[in-house]
Every structure is written in C-alpha cells, then in structure tokens.
Design a protein around this nucleic acid. Structure first.
Length: 732
DNA sequence: TACCATTTAGCATGTCGCTG
DNA sequence: CAGCGACATGCTAAATGGTA
C-alpha cells in the first residue's frame, strides 16, 4: 500500500504538519508508512505523529471508502449549490490541480472543511457541451493515447474515483546512471560488461532497489527533523499522468545526482539552498526535511537510480556502491511477502536487446550526431567559426533601526504621493531614469535592449523589491545602498539561490538611479555582499550524471513505427529525436519553422528565425541540420519530421488566422505552435517514460546527447560547436 | 556582472465518460 | 442531456540554470 499524505497538508495548529505549503521548499514531499519495522516501536513523538497521519490516509483505499467519497461528493455538491452558480470555493479552485488522483480525497469525512483535498466542483456552465455531443469522440486525446502504445509500457491511472488504482507496472531494472561530462562530471564510459552489471537476478531479494510504478513506496529516506528521525517518501512517477504529477515528482525527488555515493548530498536547491534551513514561515513546517544531511544511502541510491523500461534491456549498477552498502540499508524489516513481490517484479534483462540497442544507438549517433556534428558543422563554413559556433548587515535587524540607518545614509521615505504600487513600479520608473527625455517610440525601443524573458524576470524581481520597500516605508526609486543590501540579505535568508539573488540585483540595478555615480549592481559594497552570499550559498552543478541515450531510444523503438503512433507520441518522439540529434535547447527546437526548412537530399536544414540564448551582436544566423539515418528508419529524425508533417498537414490547412508554420504544433485544438516549456515537458515525459528519474529535465537531453556523442568518438570541439557552447569550461 | 534560457507550480480551460 | 468526475494540456509568473 502506498500511503501518501498530501503534500499541502495544512497545519493542525500544533506544528505537526509535515509539509509546508509555501514555495519553494515544500512542494510535494510525502511521508509514507513503511512496513512494520522495529523502528516503529522506537518511534519518536514526531514519528508517531506521522503514523497517525498515515493511518488516516491508509483507509482510503479500502472499498468501503468509496461510499465515504461519494458521500463527500454529495456534500460538496450541496455546498456548491448553496454558493450559487458559477462559483467555486476559492480554496477548492486553488487546490484543484493538486486534488487529482488517488490522494485527492481522504477517508476523513468528518472534517472536510479543513481538508485541502476537496475536489473542486466547477459550476461553470459547459457551453461546449452541445457541440461536444455532436462530434463526440472526435478529439479524445486519452483515447488516442491508449491506442498505439503497448499497454504494458504505460501505467494506467486510477480508473474510478475512490477505487483502487489499476496499475500496470513497468518492470524495473536497476542500472547505472552514465556520468555526463557536463558540469564537471565524467565523460561517459563504456557501459560495464554485461556480466558485470548488477543484474536483477543477482541482487538480493532484499535489495534496496525499488520499482517505480509499484503501489508500494519505493523511496524511503530517513531524515533528521530536529531530534527525530523521520521517514520521507519521494513518490513514484506515474508515467501516463500529465504534467502535474511530473511536477510533483520532480519537486519531491529533485535531488542532486552525485557521483560520490556516500558524500553529502546536493539536495534540490529549490528546496534547500545549500543545506540551509528555509525560513520559518509561521504556520508552515518547522523543519527542512530535505535539507537534512542525514539522508541515508538508500536515498543516495535513489538519486542514481535508473528505471529501466518494460523489457529490461539494459542493466547495470554503479560499482561506486558496494554490495554491503546496498544491502545494509533499510530493508532489514522487509516482509517476506514484499520480498516475493519484489522478486516477481525483478525480471532478467534481455541480452539480445541490449546488444541491439547499443548497436543501433551507436549507428544512430555516428549517423546523426557524428555526421551532424562533424560533417554538417565542419563543412558548413558559415557556421564554423562563428561566434555561436564557437556589509553593512547589522546585528540589529529591527525595522526601526533599519529605517533609522537608511535615513542616516540619505534614503527617503515615500509619501502617499510618491509611494509606488507594486503593479506599476517599473513602469513608473521608466519615465524617470533611463528613458527620461526620450520619445515614446525611442523609450519603447530602448526597452528592447532586454529580451522578453529577461524583462519578465526583472519585472518580477522589481515588483518584489517595490513591495518590500513599501513594507519598509522606503522609496524604491531612491533607496539607499543599505536598503538594497538589507533586501539582498532578506532574499538570502528566504533561501533563494545566489543566481536568483543576482537577478534581483540586476533588476534593481537596471531601474535604480546611480549611487555614488555607480550602478547599484556594480557598487563595491553590493559586489562584496554578493560575494558573501556566494560564499555562504555556493552554486553547485545540477547533474553529475546523465541518463543513457540508448535506453531512451530503445523506449522510442518500442513504441513502434511512426504510422502506428498516435499524434501525441509521434510528437514526443519527434521532439526527442530533434533534441538528441541537435543537442539543441528547448527554445531552439520550439522555434523550428517550416517556412525556413530546406530539404537537401537526406538532410533537413532549419534556419532559426529568432535569436537563440547565446546570440549577441555580431553573431551569424544560426541553422540546425538534421541528417537522415537510413539504417534505422524508426529512429530517423528526417523520416520522423516528414511523417509528422504529413500527419499534421490537415491542421496546417485550416485556413484560420493561426500561424501553423511552426514545425511543432500542440496536439490540442486549435493546434497552436508549442512554447519552449512544452517542448521541455515533452522531452521530460519521454525521459520519464524511459524509466529515468524525474529529476532529469528536458534540458538534460543536451548533456545526454553530447555525452553520447563524445563517447562514440566525436571531438570536443565538434561537441562544443553542436551544442553551441562557447568553450569547454562549460562542461569539462 | 548582466543578462537570457529553462524549469516549475499554479491556474484556466477543454475534453470525455459516467450517472441520474 | 445536464451535471459531474477525472485529467490532459497550455500559459504565466517566479525561481533557477547557464552563458558571454
């Protein structure tokens, strides 16, 4: 039984809640009830609290609880009707995305008003129902999704509310994460010989490896919370679910993969910037669960866990962990029943498949990557050689003293007239400084100096700065240096990373008048303060290992031919092939446009119509070439592009005003072109489908593909050119 | 140091099947 | 057929990752 406590469990008033609710530290942690073990008898008071919570949820999977669920549904119905039409309870509206699936409703029907799991009841009239009934089944994405993918590869989601989840599990084979050479990691080595891999059949029955799609909890981390040892479950990945689950899993299991299995973990920076405790935010949790350094070896193993696909084609295990390490983890109390279950799940790998995949992958890479990296880029003179191809902190932090200090150094406090609202802070300021005296057209053009993404970031940062200044009764446009430093300190205390704080500094620097004839961001005191933050919160690399492209390609192969795939999976496949064969960013893949597509024999060339991340004045126009892979049509990116174009042709000829010249279109009507975040999500979905940890994001395709390319013999320079890195220090 | 891109959670919306 | 459950999808703001 998987016993999940909702990640947004509210505080019961006694600070017993497990999970804090405010970002960025709280997202998605779940606490499980492990098998009955001896530790239960030794449970600390804190642990006992968790047990209570767990038991409460535990009962919800019982058949009888379906009745309770429906009973609750009636209550909600009644309540919503009382609210009238077109109303959703605010709480429900906010919680709705989190209330899907089996943890949406607990069995506790006695205290629903406090339960954030309340399923929302959308009262908005379904205006499309009429049309929907007319052309019923015409656009059923879930239906098409079920059509082509072998069922055994897909985890079925819960079929009915309140009933047990019907899961079809992937059989998982533990294997070794292949190290990437990016971010200081290691270059991919040859995979260990088959005999040397940590084969499932060779593992102990009590091995710590877990099966990601089992109903049972797999990841059990014991972390120190105060003086109590608490078990934390990082939830499983449900492959067939949408982005929400992926988000949850990523946040909850987003821990750094480290090649040093027994060293101190790099925990998700988002959760716990460099091990520091997050701020105590009132009713939120008092403990920083993830940041505890006492995560055991099982957790570390989780970080390098690979979830193999259904046929267990590849197996391996890092020799960085001794067998004793593996077996000494918290499996002592595992029941015989569970052992049997695990044995059933453990299947042996298919050696033939392994060799096949390796061969295919190597050929694929030598064809696509190699020819692309080496031939396309080295022969393309226009690309090769181009730019792109180639304190004041005081002990007393009280507001009163702070304000006094500020005033002493010349700051002004806002009056009612000059107090700036958050919403218009930057806009108000624009007319006062950098664009002062410019015409409207000139001012607008001036703002184009920053890309939209940067402007969004600065806007957000500036808004927060203005808000904080208002709280401090300081004019954000004329704040003294001390106030800026206090603000940066506040951000640091809030647990933000150095890089994030850096963005705040840049945003303030962009808009704030000069101080001592210097930009705020370049003021020596600010620089020194930022250095202090850096020292206290040194950024670390996200990955030191990457995933094995072979396995991912194998997963794609298992989907079948392009013709057999539904459009959704064809899109996923195409995006993955584009990403792997180009090592491009999601933004670059998302900007591929058919208007700029040229088919040159076996090659398809895309000119990029927009600026890429590293574009600077003087950069030449970029292009991405994709070479065919005749030896394996099913993995040929050119074939996939052509097939995708054929399948989406009807979408592109609808004659409305929507620009569908982009290569990648949404699978949902009206089939707009997808944004880069969607590209990244599709990539991540495929990676997850391949059985890899949800830790890996879409961006990890860059390191994975280039690592593979390097592994099959490409030169470093070719890799740099292909991935559009400027120098090898980025990844070596 | 200053950007710029990516990732993520939260949210809004659309869709389909089931129920009464 | 309206109401509802369930959930897939895409967009945005904010946080984080990465590069010149």
């Amino acid at each position: 039984m998987t016993h999940l406590v909702r990640c947004n469990k509210v505080n019961d008033g006694n600070n017993r809640n497990l999970i804090k609710t405010n970002r960025p530290f709280s997202q998605g942690l779940r606490v499980i009830h492990r098998e009955q073990e001896t530790q239960e008898a030794e449970a600390t008071p804190m642990e006992m609290v968790f047990t209570e919570e767990i038991k409460e949820v535990e009962s919800e999977s019982k058949p009888s609880d379906t009745i309770k669920t429906h009973s609750y549904s009636r209550k909600v119905k009644t309540f919503c009707k009382e609210l009238g039409n077109n109303h959703l309870r605010q709480k429900d509206t906010k919680r709705y995305p989190k209330c899907r699936g089996k943890f949406s409703v607990t069995s506790d029907t006695t205290d629903r008003s406090k339960n954030d799991c309340t399923q929302s009841k959308r009262k908005t009239p379904d205006v499309n129902r009429g049309q929907r009934n007319i052309d019923k089944r015409s656009h059923c994405t879930s239906k098409t999704m079920q059509g082509s993918i072998p069922k055994q590869l897909v985890l079925s989601t819960q079929k009915r509310w309140g009933s047990k989840a019907s899961v079809k599990l992937k059989t998982i084979k533990p294997t070794c994460n292949v190290p990437t050479f990016q971010n200081g990691g290691l270059v991919h080595d040859q995979r260990p010989a088959r005999s040397g891999r940590f084969h499932a059949k060779n593992r102990s029955k009590g091995g710590i490896f877990s099966f990601v799609h089992q109903a049972k909890p797999q990841k059990i981390s014991e972390v120190q919370m105060g003086r109590n040892l608490v078990r934390v479950h990082s939830p499983t990945l449900r492959v067939s679910r949408g982005s929400k689950v992926v988000h949850q899993n990523n946040e909850t299991s987003n821990r750094y993969i480290t090649k040093d299995g027994c060293s101190y973990d790099h925990i998700s920076r988002r959760h716990t910037p460099h091990g520091r405790k997050p701020p105590n935010t009132g009713n939120s949790q008092k403990f920083n669960i993830i940041s505890s350094p006492k995560i055991r070896i099982s957790d570390k193993l989780e970080k390098i866990k690979l979830k193999s696909n259904s046929k267990d084609r590849v197996s391996g295990f890092s020799d960085k962990f001794s067998r004793n390490d593996v077996l000494s983890t918290n499996r002592k109390g595992i029941s015989d029943k569970n052992k049997m279950q695990r044995n059933v799940k453990c299947r042996h790998c298919d050696s033939k498949a392994i060799s096949t995949v390796d061969r295919k992958a190597v050929v694929f890479y030598t064809s696509n990557i190699s020819s692309k990296f080496a031939k396309s880029f080295s022969s393309n003179g226009s690309n090769k050689g181009s730019v792109e191809g180639k304190v004041l902190r005081t002990k007393n932090n009280s507001l009163t003293n702070s304000k006094r200090r500020i005033n002493l150094v010349g700051g002004t406090t806002p009056t009612d007239s000059n107090r700036v609202s958050q919403s218009c802070g930057m806009e108000n300021f624009r007319g006062r400084s950098t664009t002062e005296g410019l015409s409207k057209a000139a001012a607008e053009l001036h703002e184009k100096a920053w890309r939209p993404g940067t402007q969004f970031s600065y806007k957000s940062s500036w808004r927060k700065w203005v808000s904080w200044c208002n709280e401090q009764s300081v004019n954000p446009f004329q704040a003294p240096l001390a106030t800026v430093i206090e603000f940066l300190t506040k951000l640091f205390k809030d647990g933000l990373q150095y890089r994030t704080i850096n963005t705040y500094r840049s945003a303030i620097s962009k808009n704030h008048p000069l101080i001592d004839s210097l930009q705020v961001g370049k003021h020596p005191l600010i620089i020194r303060h930022m250095r202090a933050i850096f020292n206290e919160s040194t950024p670390t690399s996200k990955y030191e290992f990457s995933w094995d492209v072979d396995i991912d390609l194998n997963e794609i192969l298992s989907w079948g031919t392009n013709q057999a795939l539904d459009i959704k999976h064809l899109s996923w496949k195409l995006v993955m092939l584009l990403a792997l064969s180009s090592a491009g960013r999601a933004s670059e893949i998302g900007m591929l446009n058919c208007k700029y597509m040229k088919q040159q024999g076996s090659q398809i060339l895309f000119e990029l119509p927009k600026l890429t991340k590293t574009c600077r004045p003087g950069s030449k126009t970029k292009s991405i070439a994709f070479n065919s892979f005749p030896n394996e049509k099913c993995l040929c990116v050119v074939t996939c592009i052509n097939d995708y174009m054929s399948r989406t042709q009807s979408w592109r000829e609808q004659g409305d005003n929507i620009d569908r010249s982009w290569l990648l279109l949404s699978v949902v009507k009206p089939h707009h072109h997808i944004v880069p975040s969607s590209v990244a999500r599709w990539l991540k979905e495929t990676i997850n489908k391949s059985g890899f940890s949800s830790l890996f994001t879409g961006h990890s395709t860059r390191s994975a593909s280039t690592s593979k390319a390097k592994r099959v013999g490409l030169s470093t320079q070719d890799v740099i050119d292909q991935a559009k890195w400027t120098n090898e220090s980025t990844f070596m």
